[in-house]
Amino acid sequence: MGDSLSVGDIVLCKVRGMEYLHLIKAISGERFQIGNNRGGINGWIGANGIFGKCIRVES
């Protein structure tokens, strides 16, 4: 999945045992900096911590 991820993508990831939707803020090799939509940065995770990418939102 790591090859198909870009900065700005919304991803489902696991951080400290909890699952979250986060934005990818930066990419460095196989590591992804994740954060929220209010400018906050939550840290770096590996591709193995990302379980999916949001491709559509329906109301």
Rank of each mutant, 00 (worst) to 15 (best):
I24T: 00
G29W: 04
R31Y: 05
L21F: 10
G17L: 09
R31V: 04
Y20T: 02
G29P: 01
L21K: 13
R56E: 15
L12W: 05
L5E: 03
A26Q: 10
G39N: 11
G17N: 10
M18G: 14
I50G: 09
F51H: 11
G52A: 12
M1D: 15
G49C: 14
I24H: 00
N37C: 13
W44S: 01
N37V: 15
L23Y: 03
G40W: 10
E30P: 02
N36E: 14
R16H: 10
R31C: 05
V57G: 12
M18H: 14
H22Q: 08
V7E: 00
C54S: 06
C13P: 04
I50C: 04
R38D: 07
G49A: 15
I41Q: 13
R16E: 12
S59Y: 13
K14V: 06
E19G: 15
L5V: 03
Q33H: 10
E30F: 04
S28D: 00
M1F: 14
K53T: 05
I34Y: 12
I24P: 01
S6Y: 02
C54R: 15
W44I: 09
D9V: 11
R16C: 06
D9H: 13
R56D: 12
G17S: 00
I45C: 13
G39Y: 13
I55C: 03
R38S: 13
D9M: 06
F32S: 01
E19P: 10
S28H: 07
G2L: 11
V11M: 08
K25Q: 08
D9F: 14
K25N: 05
I34V: 02
H22E: 09
G35E: 09
G2T: 00
I10A: 03
G17F: 01
C13R: 00
S6H: 15
E58V: 08
S28P: 00
R16T: 15
L23R: 13
S28I: 02
